[in-house]
Structure formats: structure tokens, C-alpha cells
């Protein structure tokens, strides 16, 4: 029942984000020639590149990735603080379950929604490409899904923690967006740049893609599971902090 409650609270946001991502992926594949011809947001030098490069520049490292990162902030907004403002926190806390279970259900549902969102390009891009007599390897799309999931998980966890700790309905998304922006500046700073802490770089395999021997397929390096584990650990710490704060809050 708690899962159902969490889903009801977040479904409009989730469906809007899913619809947008789907539209963008479908637009990129179905209108490829139009986009290439009319200089839509692809770097000038890459407009005549291979299909994988085109998809990479528009979806997995381009507009779709940026949009996904910003919209995930809104997916992560949750917690009981929000219910306090709506005067429904009393009803939720009166349920015979611990606060941890209420919050845990919100996190779990959010993670499932996040996983579903990252699978949208993986399903749509190779699927629609076939319809257009093009080919996009499923393994390549899955590679980016994994990166988007772990990158998105950190953004989701940060947003969740901020929504638990900050008052005001729109303070948390503004603070989370600024944190995301701040992190990109710090991570791109020359002494830190070699460590690749930049979430957007990780999610888009920035400057680490390479061509196959025939120069047909733009390929990423193998997934660094160590990096993914560290990202999952960071997200877990943020979730734990959110749980701890909620547990001690006086409603």
C-alpha cells in the first residue's frame, strides 16, 4: 500500500518525463535526415558522421541527457516535509508503519521509475532504428542506460535529501539544480578533471568514446563497475542521511 501511495504521488511527474524522453528519442530517429539537414542541435563537424555518432550526440551525450538530468531532480522530490505543508503528514504518520518504511517505499518506487526512464532510449532507439532501416546496437544503448541510471541515482538521491531537509515547495529543486551546476564547475576544474568526477561526463562518456576499426561504430570503453559501485555508495549515503533526518524530525 505504501508503494501504491508513493506511485500515486509521483506518477504525473514520471509520466511527463517518460513522455518527453520518448518523444525526443522518436523525433531523433524518425526525423534523422531532417535534423541532419537543418543543423539542429548537433555539433557542426559531426553532422555527416555515422548513425551511432549522430545518436550519441543528440541522445546519449546531448539534449536528451541534459533534459533527463534536470527532470530527474523533480522525480526525486519526496519525503514527509512536503506532506507537513499539505497538512496530511498526521494521516501518514498515523499508519501502523515506521517512518523508515514510508520513506523507503518512496525511494524504492523512485528507483524503479528511474530504471524505467533510462530504459526508454534503450528500447526506442534500437527498435525505431530498425523501422527506419538503420541499426543501433542494443548493447551500446544498454551501456548508456547503466550510466544514466547511476548518474541519475545520485541526482535523485541529492534531490530527495534536499526535499527532506529544506522547507518550501520549490526550494529543494532550486537548491538541487544549483548543487548540480556547482558540481560541474568543481569537477571540470583542471586539478580535478583527470579524476572524471563530472556526472554529465560520466553519463555521456565524454571524451572517452572511440571508433571501431572500420570507422562505422562509435564505441564506449568497457563499463567501470568500480565507478558505478562508488556512485551507488554515494547515493546510499545520501538516502541514509535522508532517512536519518526524517526519523528525527518533529512533525
Amino acid at each position: 500500500m505504501l508503494w501504491w501511495k508513493a506511485w500515486r504521488e509521483s506518477r504525473v511527474r514520471f509520466l511527463l518525463i517518460a513522455l518527453t524522453l520518448s518523444t525526443l528519442c522518436a523525433f531523433a530517429v524518425l526525423f534523422e535526415s531532417y535534423i541532419r539537414q537543418h543543423q539542429l542541435p548537433i555539433p557542426l563537424a559531426m553532422r555527416k558522421g555515422a548513425y551511432t555518432e549522430y545518436i550519441y550526440n543528440l541522445i546519449f551525450a546531448g539534449t536528451a541527457k541534459g533534459m533527463f538530468a534536470i527532470l530527474v531532480i523533480f522525480l526525486g522530490l519526496g519525503g514527509l516535509q512536503r506532506e507537513r505543508a499539505h497538512n496530511t503528514v498526521g494521516f501518514t504518520l498515523a499508519l501502523p508503519v515506521s517512518r523508515l518504511r514510508v520513506i523507503g517505499a518512496q525511494i524504492a518506487v523512485g528507483m524503479i521509475e528511474l530504471a524505467t526512464l533510462v530504459l526508454i532510449p534503450t528500447i526506442l532507439i534500437p527498435g525505431l532504428s530498425t523501422l527506419m532501416h538503420r541499426s543501433y546496437p542494443l548493447a551500446l544503448a544498454l551501456h548508456f542506460s547503466v550510466l544514466w541510471f547511476f548518474g541519475g541515482l545520485i541526482i535523485f538521491a541529492t534531490s530527495f535529501l534536499l526535499s527532506v531537509t529544506t522547507p518550501g515547495e520549490y526550494t529543494a529543486p532550486v537548491a538541487c539544480y544549483l548543487a548540480l551546476v556547482g558540481h560541474t564547475f568543481v569537477a571540470a576544474w583542471r586539478p580535478l578533471a583527470p579524476y572524471r568526477l563530472h556526472l554529465m561526463w560520466i553519463m555521456g562518456e565524454f571524451r572517452s568514446m572511440g571508433w571501431d576499426a572500420a570507422h562505422n561504430l562509435l564505441q564506449p570503453p568497457p563499463l567501470s563497475w568500480l565507478r558505478m559501485s562508488v556512485m551507488a555508495l554515494v547515493a546510499s549515503v545520501l538516502f541514509s542521511a535522508a532517512l536519518r533526518v526524517t526519523d528525527r524530525q518533529d512533525f
Partner: peptide, 8 residues
Amino acid sequence: GEYSAAVA
């Protein structure tokens, strides 16, 4: 809807 306006 909650936050729907911002997402929209």
C-alpha cells in the same frame, strides 16, 4: 499537481 507545473 504537485511539482507537475515545474516539470511541465
